[in-house]
């Protein structure tokens, strides 16, 4: 083994950059969250204010609403993407011509810049120009105006996210499904088990780690969705699709109320970590206990 100093020198630039761009901002926000600091206020200097920011936050209706919307959105997209993704994975595993091409096309949305995804969907939904309002009017006699009806805006944002991210779920589940052991499946079929039972008792337990990993990744991404929603609805109508990332960035940030914004960032980070940790425990902890 060579001198470890050389090793540390090689890894030092990476650690330094991540310290400055990753850890330092976190520590900064952790401290500022406990200060009263508004550059446009009478006293622009930071002053220690204890937990006052947090005390105000738990009564901040706009903030709580934004959190609630974020969770609603996350639940909707996670469930629908898992169901659709599983079905598509099954379909993609079938033997067919042009499989590679279909797979590539299906992967396309994953690579597109979120902001461009938002632009794409905006063009699909603009009244007078986009085809979706036109079809809605023609086929269902429904007035479809994103900037007026909150339910439509929310549903469209969910649909956009499904279009954008279902391919990831499809591909991960496909990877899981293709590693499924043949033998227990064959045995169960010979024993005359129904497809439904096979799914619940064999396929699903085997897929569990892949499903949980996928949910983990999607959860983190869904909680921080900003770009495409900003482009599609701008958070509107009103604040009906203003998810937490958007709320911090568009509402709190421009007010230059740094202490309050930091406190809000901290709570958001806290909730993200707690949710991810709970999932992580579900992934690993439970397994250890039953062993």
């Amino acid at each position: 083994m060579r001198n470890t100093t050389t090793g540390w020198l090689l890894i030092a630039p990476t650690l330094f950059i991540l310290f400055v761009t990753g850890l330092l901002p976190f520590l900064y926000v952790l401290v500022v969250g406990f200060f009263d600091w508004n550059t446009f206020a009478q006293n622009p200097e930071p002053q220690f204010s204890g937990v006052n920011n947090f005390r105000a936050l738990v009564f901040d209706a706009a903030f709580l609403k934004s959190l609630w919307l974020t969770f609603k959105f996350t639940a909707f997209v996670l469930v629908s993407q898992l169901v659709i993704g599983f079905f598509l994975a099954k379909m993609l595993l079938r033997d067919m011509p042009l499989k590679g091409l279909f797979r590539t096309i299906h992967t396309l949305p994953l690579m597109i810049a979120p902001i461009a995804v938002g632009a794409t969907w905006r063009l699909m939904t603009v009244p007078g120009l986009g085809p979706i309002p036109h079809w809605m009017q023609q086929w269902f006699d429904v007035k479809y105006i994103l900037s007026r009806f909150p339910d439509q805006a929310f549903a469209t944002v969910v649909a956009m996210d499904i279009w954008h991210w279902t391919p990831l779920v499809t591909l991960t589940l496909m990877a899981g499904l293709s590693n499924l052991p043949e033998e227990p499946l064959e045995q169960a079929r010979i024993d005359g088990a129904s497809e439904w039972r096979i799914f619940w008792d064999i396929t699903l337990p085997f897929l569990k780690p892949v499903v949980l990993t996928t949910v983990f990744i999607r959860l983190m991404d869904a909680l921080r969705t900003v770009d495409e929603v900003w482009m599609l609805t701008g958070g509107g109508p009103g604040a009906e699709t203003r998810f937490i990332g958007l709320h911090i960035w568009r509402v709190v940030f421009p007010k230059t109320d740094y202490g309050y914004g930091s406190a809000m960032s901290l709570i958001t980070l806290y909730l993200t970590i707690v949710m991810c940790w709970l999932l992580y425990v579900a992934m690993t902890g439970m397994k250890e206990k039953t062993r």
Partner: peptide
């Protein structure tokens, strides 16, 4: 160390906008 490096990718960017802007 490896784990810490990876967690940097998981962080929600909106949360770090404020400190990054100030820095």
């Amino acid at each position: 160390l490896f784990f810490w490096v990876l967690t940097n990718r998981m962080a929600p960017p909106a949360v770090f906008l404020l400190p990054l802007f100030l820095m």
